[in-house]
Design a protein around this nucleic acid. Structure first.
Length: 530
DNA sequence: CTAGGGTTAG
């Protein structure tokens, strides 16, 4: 049987290995009987071992894999390069990267595969830098990288600081070596460029690829959607369907994502019908994309229906649902669902789940609840809150008017406040007319994104709220001096005198002194109502 | 016809 096709052996290994093991009481027995089934020759066992190790990696079967390793040693296959590469792959896929490294360093003469296996292994274990360094080391040897090596090392660049520079450098290398027509390489390059926000480079690469397959299309669609070019993603999907390439679950997942981003409920429903036609309703990736699409499209009940029909629920699905309720303003249902799952012990909440819960509190302005969950996360679950959790809590305090407490938290948290935090803080400063903190927030925002006009306008409102018209004028002068363009929907208006008093009514807090008419500049910022 | 590779979810 070992002379049959490898896919047969693979299938065989997966389906019958377990049975053999239980019958013979040990993996050794199973392997012995496999090697003697087809007669006297013992040689083919190494093919079986190789395929078995591969499937142990794919199914993350750690127990079986290490027994095969032991059997390898016992049968004298320890130095077989093919088996060692398979071992590296197996250990890496079971997240035992140290063991993978150990096998690698035990190899006397390496080949492209052994190098590539460890580079891939480092990359999937989150050690992108390590993968890059190993690749560099490989370049000093006689062994040339091949397409597969490039694929691995490019994937390792994704999410690295300076990943773009590495990626461009690798791209040059790839063109020199003539690997740039390989679709696998093209996909990883498109993915890498798209993840670094270099969508133009990705588009260029995509356009240059002559024989695009499904996955190349999928990568490009996903790249568009990641960079919020959702319409382009949809257009490309239509084009892809015109090419009769077919679609995969990946495609539909990405398209649903684009529909969610655009809140396109109708188109999302059409994709849902495609999911059903393809018989992919059981795919959890699609289920979560559907839940997300329905909740962002405003149909939370259909989102719930998708969840109900999914047989195997996981953290992602539950979190999508909680987030869905939170975002559509049904916060109490979000919290009820979360609490219910906790008591039934159907959910071990992780960071993102707590983000959804805190978002629900934030949406409903439930400060006490928010603090309670925040504390629960740290004390009951021993998690260290990440910046998004702090952002929810800070915004909760700020929107309740406790600006100093919010500012305090921003200082005490172990992260630097990001753009989102400062801008939500600034809006609270506007609501409560806190000039001092508002000015600070606006300064920070302007420093972070000098070309964005929004903080100038909000700051002007903070001043206006306190009748500091000279400061309002100063903001306008600064904007003109710095060549700022107004964001769409905002206008400077010359205010006729009879409207001035009406604006005052709006902005004047009770008990404030009447403004000095002579200092009023007769123009005002206002946001057009869509 | 022994190994290693690309795109998907909160």
């Amino acid at each position: 049987m070992v002379h049959c096709s490898s896919s047969f052996v693979y299938g065989f290994t997966r389906r019958f290995f377990g049975k053999l093991c239980s019958k013979t009481a040990s993996i050794y027995g199973a392997l012995e009987s496999l090697s003697t089934v087809n007669g006297s020759t013992r040689k083919p066992i190494k093919y079986v071992l190789c395929t078995a190790l591969s499937s142990c990696g794919k199914t993350r079967n750690w127990r079986l894999g290490i027994q095969i390793h032991a059997f390898m040693i016992r049968s004298g296959y320890e130095d077989n390069l093919f088996l060692c590469s398979a071992l590296i792959d197996f250990y890496a896929k079971c997240f035992a990267i140290l063991d993978a490294k150990k096998v690698f360093s035990g190899i006397r003469t390496h080949d492209q595969v052994s190098w590539t296996s460890l580079i891939t292994g480092l990359s999937i274990n989150g050690q992108g830098i390590g993968a890059l360094l190993l690749f560099k080391e490989m370049l000093y040897t006689q062994i040339m990288p091949n397409c597969l090596t490039f694929v691995s090392v490019i994937s390792a660049c994704v999410g690295q600081s300076g990943g773009l520079q590495h990626c461009s450098a690798l791209h040059t290398h790839i063109i020199k070596q003539g690997c740039d027509t390989n679709n696998f390489v093209v996909c990883s390059l498109i993915d890498c460029y798209a993840n670094q926000g270099q969508i133009d480079d990705a588009v260029l690469l995509f356009a240059k690829t002559s024989e695009k397959d499904i996955v190349v299309y999928n990568s490009m669609i996903s790249g568009y959607s990641k960079n919020m070019f959702n319409e382009n993603a949809l257009k490309l999907f239509v084009e892809m369907r015109g090419q009769n390439l077919g679609t995969t679950d990946h495609t539909l997942c990405t398209i649903l994502n684009a529909c969610s981003n655009l809140a396109l409920l109708l188109q999302g429903r059409q994709v849902h019908s495609l999911v059903i036609k393809m018989g992919s309703e059981r795919n959890v990736f699609l289920a979560s994309a559907l839940i997300d699409m329905y909740s962002k499209g405003g149909d939370i009940d259909d989102a719930q229906r998708v969840l109900d029909q999914t047989s195997e629920k996981n953290n992602v699905l539950w979190t999508s649902m909680i987030m869905g309720y939170a975002q559509c303003g049904r916060s109490s249902e979000a919290l009820e669902l979360f609490d219910c799952l906790l008591t039934k012990q159907e959910l071990v909440p992780d960071h993102i789940c707590f983000t959804a819960v805190l978002t629900a509190c934030n949406h409903a302005g439930l400060l006490d609840k928010g603090v309670e969950y925040f504390n629960k996360m740290t004390t009951n679950y021993g998690m260290s809150p990440d910046i998004d959790h702090y952002a929810c809590l800070i915004d909760l305090y700020a929107r309740k008017g406790n600006l100093s407490k919010a500012r305090d938290l921003m200082q005490k948290m172990p992260y630097d406040p990001n753009y989102v935090i400062w801008s939500s803080f600034l809006s609270s400063c506007k609501i409560y007319g806190n000039v001092k903190l508002g000015r600070e927030a606006a300064d920070q925002l302007i420093k972070m994104e000098p070309s964005n006009a929004a903080p100038y306008l909000t700051l002007a409102h903070v001043y206006a709220r306190k009748n500091l018209w000279n400061e309002v004028a100063e903001v306008r002068r600064l904007m003109q001096q710095r060549g700022m363009r107004k964001p769409a929907g905002w206008s400077w208006v010359e205010v006729p005198f009879h409207l001035v008093t009406r604006l005052w009514d709006t902005y004047l807090a009770e008990g404030d002194a009447l403004p000095d008419f002579s200092s009023f500049p007769f123009f005002f910022l206002y946001q057009e109502i869509a």
